[in-house]
C-alpha cells in the first residue's frame, strides 16, 4: 500500500512542480538541464523506493506510475478542461513578424529563441519572414513562415 501511495504522491508533486516551472524548462535541454534532470531523478528515486529495494516494490511503483499516466491521458481525452490544466495550451508569441512582448516575458523566452527555432526548422533569417511563432504545449517553438 505504501509504495502505491508514495508513487502517486511523487507523480502529483512532479506534475505540479513542472507545471509551475513553465513550458520551456526542460524542452530545450542544455548540458546543465540534462544534469539537473538526472539529479532530480536521483532524489526522486530515494523517496519512491524508501528502504525497500525488492523487485516487487519496483514492480508496484512502476505499475502505479504508468497506470496513473494512462489514467490522466484518458481523462485528458475525455475533458478538454483537464487537458488544459495538465498540459497547458499553445500560445502564439509572434504574429506577422511582430513579437508579442508581454507573452514572451511571461513565458521567459525572447526573440532569440524564436529566431533560433526559425533558423533550425525553416532556415529563415529574420523575424519579418515569420507569420506565426507558436509556443507549443511541449515547450518547443513552431514557426509558420510568411
Amino acid at each position: 500500500m505504501d509504495s502505491v501511495l508514495r508513487a502517486a504522491a511523487i507523480y502529483v508533486f512532479l506534475l505540479v512542480i513542472f507545471r509551475f516551472a513553465g513550458k520551456r524548462t526542460l524542452s530545450e535541454m542544455t548540458t546543465f538541464d540534462f544534469i539537473l534532470l538526472l539529479v532530480i531523478g536521483e532524489s526522486t528515486q530515494q523517496a519512491l523506493l524508501g528502504d525497500d529495494f525488492s523487485i516487487i516494490n519496483a514492480a508496484v511503483i512502476i505499475t502505479t506510475l504508468v497506470a496513473i499516466d494512462i489514467g490522466t491521458s484518458l481523462l485528458k481525452r475525455r475533458s478538454q478542461r483537464v487537458e488544459k490544466w495538465l498540459d497547458g495550451t499553445p500560445l502564439i508569441v509572434l504574429e506577422n513578424g511582430q513579437p508579442l512582448m508581454d507573452r514572451l516575458n511571461k513565458e521567459r523566452i525572447d526573440e532569440g529563441d524564436i529566431l533560433q527555432a526559425a533558423r533550425s526548422s525553416q532556415g529563415l533569417e529574420r523575424l519579418d519572414q515569420i507569420k506565426y511563432a507558436v509556443l507549443e504545449k511541449s515547450g518547443g517553438i513552431s514557426i509558420v513562415p510568411k
Binding site: 488544459k84 497547458g88 495550451t89 500560445l91 502564439i92 511571461k106 507558436v134
Partner: peptide, 17 residues
C-alpha cells in the same frame, strides 16, 4: 491559424504559476 490557444486560461494560469 488553427490552434487551441486559450488566452483567458493562459492568463489565469500565469497567475497560478
Amino acid at each position: 491559424i488553427q490552434v487551441e490557444q486559450d488566452l483567458a486560461h493562459q492568463r489565469l494560469f500565469w497567475k497560478i504559476e
